[in-house]
Amino acid sequence: MDYLKATYFFDYGHKAIQHIVASFTEKSVKEKAIGIYLRVRDEWRYDPYSISLAKNSYKASTIAAKDSGNCVEKSVLLIACLRALNIPARLHLGKVKNHLAVERLTEKFGSNELTPHGMVNVFLNGKWLKMSPAFNKTLCARFGVDPLDFDGENNSFLQQYNNEGSLFMEYVDDYGHFEDVPVEFMKRNIKEHYPHIFGTNDTTTEFKL
């Protein structure tokens, strides 16, 4: 599989993506990966309450034009940026359970489980590493959780505990990795887990909770 190619979703030839990566092109591969990870993590606010089933919503250039995104959207943006910098990257999906500040999640989703949860696999120094750009630094500060840093050598995708030692997040299912954005799989997954939001025959494509 080609984890460097541009696709409909990872449209890194778009001027919006090229603008994001422009300041990283002269750095080392490791510096590129770390720098672009931090930029996507912190410059796009995490918003789990905006759900879309529209194909266009998952184009990297569409996401780049916003100031926020859910975990899948931020992962798509990061992958496009990494590929633009000639670093192989792919989307990894799973299901996570949040244990802190879950009242609104439970109210809106009917559960404290979020699915599909997106993260990124990046190929550096001959191995695939996991990293999650979802939770921006200001959000982490609000919930008393250290932000996930990435050192270019180790996995960085799970904030299991907050700073007081309380359980924060856990992975409860792993859907594996994908060369491109599996929109049809994501639609089925969302409708299966949140039928009260998107019924199986619902034609709505976007929902702001």
Rank of each mutant, 00 (worst) to 15 (best):
R41H: 11
T106C: 08
T62G: 00
A89E: 15
Y58R: 04
G69H: 04
S57H: 06
T62H: 07
H19A: 12
A54K: 13
N154H: 10
L167D: 13
G13V: 04
K30E: 14
S61Y: 14
S132D: 01
K5D: 08
E164D: 09
V21S: 02
K66W: 14
V183K: 05
A141E: 12
E179Y: 02
Y8R: 04
R39T: 05
D2E: 15
N155Q: 01
Y58V: 11
Y175C: 03
K59F: 11
E26G: 03
F9P: 01
E170N: 03
H19C: 00
M119K: 07
N121I: 12
H99L: 15
G118W: 06
S52L: 11
T115C: 15
L77Q: 02
H193L: 12
D11Q: 07
I17H: 08
E31N: 06
A64D: 05
I79C: 07
T25K: 09
D174Y: 07
K95E: 15
I87G: 09
E26V: 13
L78V: 03
D47M: 15
C140R: 02
E153T: 00
F168R: 00
D151F: 13
A141C: 11
D42T: 05
G69R: 01
G94A: 11
H14D: 14
N98G: 04
A60D: 09
K30M: 13
Q160E: 09
L91I: 08
R188C: 14
E184K: 14
K97G: 08
F123P: 04
